[in-house]
Design a protein around this nucleic acid. Structure first.
Lengths: 101, 101
DNA sequence: GAGCTTGTTCGACCTTTGTCGAACAACGGT
DNA sequence: ACCGTTGTTCGACAAAGGTCGAACAAGCTC
């Protein structure tokens, strides 16, 4: 089953923004930005694995991440270059924002 | 009644992003970016005035706009400088994105 | 003050979305 | 072949959010 990773230009801006407009997903994106490629299981932010899987799907379908299988795990990584090319400054603006005091 | 225009630093990033993650609101922001200050009524994007008022409230409470009374109207403007200072690149990234084909 | 214009607020409604547990699927190791 | 690990999918549920019409408020003009 292909993981359905759309062309970023085909994703409406509102969908990209909506994908980033969630605390859990933002934490995932931050983790990916810092640590590079990571397995789904490494994002343990106090939600069930069903919920985590859901959030990763949202990020993937918004064109923010790519996923590849690796044994029993799936490795996720940020599509930084494409993102920065299409929305220069967006990622940085979001990532450098202080965590909610 | 004060219109409750929060300090941008007090607004969680997710709230800012969520405010921008809507088609109607994005159109409003684009219009404000192009035309500068404008009356609420000038944003006729196929929604009722109740809905329009709702969206303007969301934008205001997310720290994206300022509103001032002017006779029977209310003039709205983008908080560009603050936005660009706190989230450099965000606004540009969102505004320069092509409209949904 | 009557009436018009401009916005806001108030339910109400319906869709979307975040969350979970449970069931399922794929893979690796023993 | 079996089991454990890792993710995904499937309802189900609750909360959030966009939408509307109607009622209300404030201000201008005649």
């Amino acid at each position: 089953m292909e993981p359905h990773e759309p062309d970023l230009t085909a994703v409406p801006v509102t969908a990209v923004l909506a994908a980033l407009a969630d605390d859990v997903r933002l934490q995932i994106v931050r983790a990916l930005a810092e640590g590079g490629e990571a397995a789904c299981g490494s994002f343990d932010f106090g939600v069930s694995k069903a919920t985590r899987s859901h959030h990763l799907k949202v990020l993937r379908e918004a064109g923010l991440t790519r996923t590849r299988a690796a044994g029993t795990s799936r490795l996720v990584r940020l599509r930084r270059d494409e993102l920065n090319r299409l929305y220069p400054g967006l990622l940085d603006a979001v990532l450098t924002s202080r965590p909610p005091a």
